[in-house]
Nucleic acid binder design. Sequence first.
DNA 1: ATGACTGGCTCGGCCAGA
Length: 291
Amino acid sequence: MRIATWNVNSAKQRLPRFLPWLDERQPDVVCLQETKLANEAFTELFEAELASRGYEVALNGEVQWNGVALLSKVGLDDVVAGIPDGPGFPHQEARAVSATCGGIRVHSLYVPNGREPDSDHYRYKLEWLEALRKQVAADPANVIVCGDMNIAPTDADVFDPAAFAGHTHVTPAEREALAALQAVGLHDVVRDRWPNETVFSYWDYRAGMFHKNLGMRIDLALASKPVAERVKAAWIDRQARKGTGPSDHAPVMVDLDEAPDGDIGPMVPPPSAAGPRRGKLPQGSPRTKKA
DNA sequence: ATGACTGGCTCGGCCAGA
């Protein structure tokens, strides 16, 4: 089972990059952030393309800003849009959607930016993270928290810590809020896989930052222990940041082995596998043809 | 360099992003 999370920076603008990426990478579950589309507009643009590829879709969008989505080929149950009792700025923004996919509670999140330390938006960011922590703590067993967290967990996750001094994304309070979320029992699966490497997920569009690999790791996949133990691979899909018309974020990819109990979500048997069921067919129904 | 790029809204610039 492959789970991907990607801040696409406008789903509409990313369409020519997103669909080929989907066909190339074939993720089973996709968390999207910054769709910047109301649900109706997202559906208009994507419903047919995603349905033909076998994805169910859960949306929490709004016009102009923010917007998150969850796509799944392995079931999409108990969808929750937003964070229950979460804060707003001033209204509750479209920054969270979660659902159960293939037996795992998956969260697609776009954490508030924070703008300036100690600003109203910064305090909102911290309150939002605490509300998220409470939501995840209520159901922490089999979970993966994915998305643009807008926090670099450590100084190793920014190209130059000095360049970020006094800015958001690296302040102690933000890192403590992220640590409190992880203290629910979540493992940073990309950092666990690449403990000593330079691994970024975001590069500013300006000044050739991607070309020079001057970026940040702010897009995270945080998995509870039963999920983290199934991780076979976890990486940043840098290819998606290259070329023409990319997002400024790259996808984060997580490949899971099957669950020990074999529960990888609902399976619909192909018609040929059903075979003739003596006594179950209604009278007069045509028999299934033998192979 | 107090910039650089991109997108939304709207059609001229400003806001937001991180």
